[in-house]
Nucleic acid binder design. Structure first.
Length: 405
DNA sequence: AAAGCGCACAACCGCACGATA
DNA sequence: TTATCGTGCGGTTGTGCGCTT
């Protein structure tokens, strides 16, 4: 028995919205608000639309301060960075880009950015229809390292990890993307035996990501200073610290810290080292001096518990990455240069986003963040942004999430 | 000129979650 | 504790337009 549909599909209108419908919806919401019930709203205003459709139309097109098209280079960088870090959690990414909607960003990623960055064509509808296993499209058409072991040596990705069961398309794309940005294909000894891989390897790395990270541009201007609760110490670990800490060769405290190839940095509590998890990076204590501060009402709980921890693909993804970075001892050496995995910009606390939104006008999407106590996953996977009370007065955070679908 | 194709955008669908009765 | 409902999210599909053959 399936759940009842949200509306009578036989009587609701589908397809593009007319200007008249837009005007009706906009006028009503501007005057009365949504009334807290989208399902009932279309009846109230005489629209033959599903409530969900009304909500979508309002959020994506009719509400004030919506931007469409013309993504700036900086916005592209932010999308790219966050996609690597957290995957296809478009609503969270959208929260970092004022005026942008998750739908817009999702479309932009799928139609432009992905191709631009990964250098591959999205399979056509027809190809997709004929493709029995969608995961194989990525595995075969993407620029992932060969897992056949033929000629490329041990590239560290096990056959198991490369199977559709182990690594999702999203995870593969993120690995590809990050490698791409770092120009690490050669360092990983990838066997590139198809055209798309060769094309990808020839493409230039992401040129300005590092600049963006260094300048730490992500919504710094809107960070509130008066909200209370826990202080989250952001953000950028200075490069010299990253250099010193290494990845796996060190002992003691340094061993607690590891940067993953997705850009995640992990800080385990002293004395309880465990295998790092992929996820949003946690800032180091040393980063405090160079960091901005933001506040976020949350409690400090360590690890990936609560909403269910990390997604099923993370362990495999981690195993692959850790085997790479661990075995290479603190970075990837290529051409006499040691490549360190960059730290990613910090996600803005939703409450900060809410505060920023409040300054320019009510925004329903942000208002839901404001009430959620920085719950990053309530709807998107049930995971919470959780703090790690690593030492007195300092909080590191790991964003868990089942975002590999 | 017309068919085929790819692309971009808008919209829909189904699932998971939280709230509530 | 369980069922139901509304909401939010990410994935997918529909559609129109422009380019290519």
């Amino acid at each position: 028995m399936g759940r009842a549909p949200c509306c009578d599909k036989a009587s609701v209108k589908k397809g593009p919205w007319s200007p008249e419908e837009d005007a009706k919806l906009k006028a009503y919401i501007e005057e009365h608000g949504t009334g807290g019930n989208w399902i009932a709203l279309p009846q109230k205003i005489g629209l033959k639309r599903c409530g969900k459709s009304c909500r979508l139309r309002w959020l994506n097109y009719l509400r004030p301060n919506i931007k469409h098209g013309d993504f700036t280079e900086e916005e592209e960088h932010i999308i790219c960075s966050l996609y690597i870090s957290i995957g296809s959690r478009w609503s969270i990414i959208a929260a970092q880009l004022p005026g942008r909607t998750d739908n817009d960003i999702k479309n932009y990623w799928n139609t432009k950015l992905k191709k631009k960055l990964l250098g591959k064509r999205a399979p056509s509808r027809r190809a997709r229809a004929n493709q029995a296993d969608p995961y194989l499209v990525v595995a075969a058409g993407g620029n992932m390292c060969s897992t056949s072991g033929g000629g490329g040596g041990n590239n560290g990705i096990s056959a198991t990890a490369a199977t559709p069961q182990a690594l999702s398309a999203s995870a593969l794309e993120r690995i590809q993307l990050h490698m791409r940005l770092q120009g690490l294909y050669g360092a990983f000894g990838c066997a590139t035996n198809n055209d798309s891989a060769a094309t990808a390897a020839a493409a230039p790395p992401w040129p300005k990501l590092e600049t963006l990270l260094q300048t730490n541009k992500l919504l710094q201007g809107s960070l509130p200073t008066d909200a209370v609760a826990t202080t989250v110490v952001s953000v950028q670990q200075p490069q010299h610290l990253a250099d010193q800490s290494g990845l796996a060769a060190g002992a003691g405290e340094a061993e607690h810290q590891l940067s993953s190839a997705t850009g995640a940095t992990y800080m385990a509590p002293p004395g309880s080292f465990e295998r790092p998890k992929l996820g949003f990076y946690s800032p180091s204590a040393e980063a405090e001096a160079a960091s901005a501060e933001m506040t976020c009402p949350m409690v400090g709980v360590y690890g990936g518990g609560g909403g269910g921890g990390f997604g099923p693909h993370h362990d495999e993804l981690y195993d692959f990455l850790y085997s790479k970075y661990g075995s290479l001892g603190g970075g990837v050496v290529q051409g006499g240069h040691t490549y360190h995995i960059p730290l990613l910009p910090e996600l803005q606390c939703p409450d900060a986003a809410a505060a920023a939104a409040a300054a320019v006008g009510a925004d329903e999407k942000f208002s839901t963040w404001a009430a959620s106590s920085c719950d990053y996953g309530a709807a998107a996977g049930g995971h919470q942004l959780q703090g790690n009370p690593i030492s007195s007065g300092l909080q590191d955070y790991v964003l868990g999430g089942g975002y590999d679908q």
